[in-house]
């Protein structure tokens, strides 16, 4: 099965010959840096980064440095505060990079969760199969990078349990997500394994409504809101920096709370 994370059409290998000097230069640069640091990866993969001015590059470098600082500050055993059910906001706040009118609901019966990368059992999952896995409920604060917050009540499969179940390489660096609304995202493995990181299927005890990511979304207490993709269609475990929708546009990648 072709990985959902790879392009459907493979580029002409001739491109490599055309750009051989450039490729060699990049390889040399990689060697000079003495290996692939997160910063180097960001620089090399580049993605949609349009900001190529010296100031922009310097600011990016600090942001990459901050990824490292945050990873060091992150305590995998530190639990986010949980709140009483009476404080839960119903319905929760909606946000996306487009208006709510443009949300495209998903047919739950036809939906499949595909797996890719460093996972031993890559068979796709149906909603019913996921519902059979052990579930956890968390009542946590959602903090948006914009500055607003609210208390939400989420339930679903702990991502750790799911990754263990499919035989994922838990020593890999990243867990990446693809979504039906073209909103790729990725988190570090330590945050993925945190007990308050869920593949959420329900909000406030009821099935996840369409605009909040039905049938499956990520909900983690240890990341900013934009690191929680909705309408997830595929998960990949990888050592290659995957970036993300907003991350490629300038928001800090680690974005840990």
């Amino acid at each position: 099965m072709r990985s959902p994370f790879r392009p459907r059409t493979v580029p002409d290998p001739g491109i490599l010959d055309d750009h051989r000097p450039l490729v060699r230069q990049i390889e040399r640069r990689g060697l000079l840096r003495g290996g692939l640091t997160l910063g180097a990866l960001t620089m090399l993969t580049g993605c949609d980064v349009t900001d190529t001015t010296a100031v922009g590059r310097a600011l990016r470098a600090v942001s990459n440095f901050n990824d490292g600082v945050q990873a060091a500050l992150f305590d995998p055993r530190k639990l986010a505060p949980e709140y009483p059910a009476s404080q839960v906001l119903k319905p929760p706040r909606f946000n996306a990079y487009y208006d709510v009118e443009d949300v495209k609901p998903i047919d739950g019966a036809a939906w499949r969760l595909e797996l890719a990368g460093l996972i031993s059992d890559k068979r796709p999952w149906t909603r019913r199969q996921i519902a059979e896995l052990p579930e956890r409920e968390i009542i946590i604060r959602h903090v948006c990078v914009e500055g607003w917050d609210y208390i939400g009540q989420w339930s679903g499969v702990p991502l750790r349990a799911f990754l263990e179940c499919v035989g994922a390489d838990l020593t890999a660096k990243y867990v990446a997500f693809k979504s039906a609304d073209d909103y790729p995202s990725s988190i570090d493995m330590a945050s993925a394994l945190h007990p308050q990181t869920l593949l959420a299927t329900r909000y406030a005890g009821a099935e996840l409504p369409d605009p909040y990511g039905y049938p499956l979304r990520l909900r983690t207490a240890v990341k900013l809101g934009f690191k929680n993709p909705k309408w997830i269609t595929a998960i990949e475990v990888t050592n290659t920096y995957p970036g993300g929708y907003w991350e490629n546009r300038g928001f800090n990648w680690f974005a840990g709370l």
């Binding site: 319905p91 706040r93 948006c144 914009e146």
Partner: peptide, 8 residues
């Protein structure tokens, strides 16, 4: 009631 995303 309908929902809406933040304004900016």
């Amino acid at each position: 009631l309908g929902i809406v995303r933040p304004f900016h």
